[in-house]
Simulated assay, not measured.
Amino acid sequence: MRTPSAVTVTLVRGDITQQSVDAIVNAANSSLLGGGGVDGAIHRRGGPEILAACRELRASQYGKGLRTGQAVATTAGKLDAQWVIHTVGPVWSSTEDRSALLASCYRESLRVAAELGARTVAFPAISTGIYGWPLDDGARIAVRTVLAEAGAPVEEVRFVLFDAHAYAEFEEALAAQG
């Protein structure tokens, strides 16, 4: 395990598709071919280049789709970023602990970002929308994982949160980490 360097973690209330960063993380579905929520917004605003790149991935090494907890990069199309890093979050379960899979989404996305040389990375609150992950727990896992795993060349991790409730939960999680 590598020793993380000092990374700046910032919180932004807004639209992740309007961030100017090196890499935007997409809360994708396993098909990589677009969907609702963050995934749909990234594909719509990024344009057909993202979908074309995802289709190429499906035609090559991801024929059955991307597994939960994995991450892979494509072009960012028309977004103000160089790359979109797609990761598939777990669906929340009250009977099975899937927190390691959620942490893996953040860890693997940071690994891909580092391999690409990305210095700034914007994350959504993975799995906390349609996948039903409780926002307080999702924020805690996200912040803890990013603080433990982010390292050079990544200098800034930005959590881009759609509403005031999500922002407050991430703010509380960040404060709890000191």
Rank of each mutant, 00 (worst) to 15 (best):
E156R: 14
V157Q: 09
V84T: 09
E171Y: 03
R111N: 10
D39S: 06
G77E: 12
E169R: 14
T87V: 01
G69N: 05
P4C: 14
Y106N: 09
G178R: 14
L102P: 14
V112K: 15
A148C: 08
V157C: 15
E96I: 13
K64P: 03
G37Y: 00
G47V: 02
V9N: 10
Y167F: 14
E156V: 10
L79N: 06
N29Y: 03
A52L: 12
P48R: 15
W133R: 10
E115C: 12
R158G: 02
L51E: 06
T10E: 13
P153E: 09
L32G: 09
G89L: 10
S5N: 08
T145M: 13
V88K: 03
R2P: 00
A150T: 06
F170P: 09
T95V: 13
V9M: 13
Y62S: 10
A41W: 03
R45P: 01
P153T: 00
L32E: 01
L102F: 13
A125Q: 05
V9G: 11
A152V: 00
L11C: 13
S20Q: 07
Q61I: 01
I42F: 13
A114V: 06
A139Q: 04
T87I: 05
L32K: 05
S5H: 08
G132V: 05
T120V: 03
L102G: 12
D22M: 12
G178M: 06
V7H: 07
L116C: 15
A103C: 07
A125F: 01
Q82T: 07
G47R: 07
G151N: 04
T95S: 15
V9H: 11
Y106S: 12
A173P: 04
R67I: 00
A166H: 08
Q70I: 01
L102Y: 10
A41L: 08
E156M: 10
G69Y: 05
G69F: 11
R45N: 08
G46C: 08
A122P: 03
T75W: 13
H86T: 03
R140G: 02
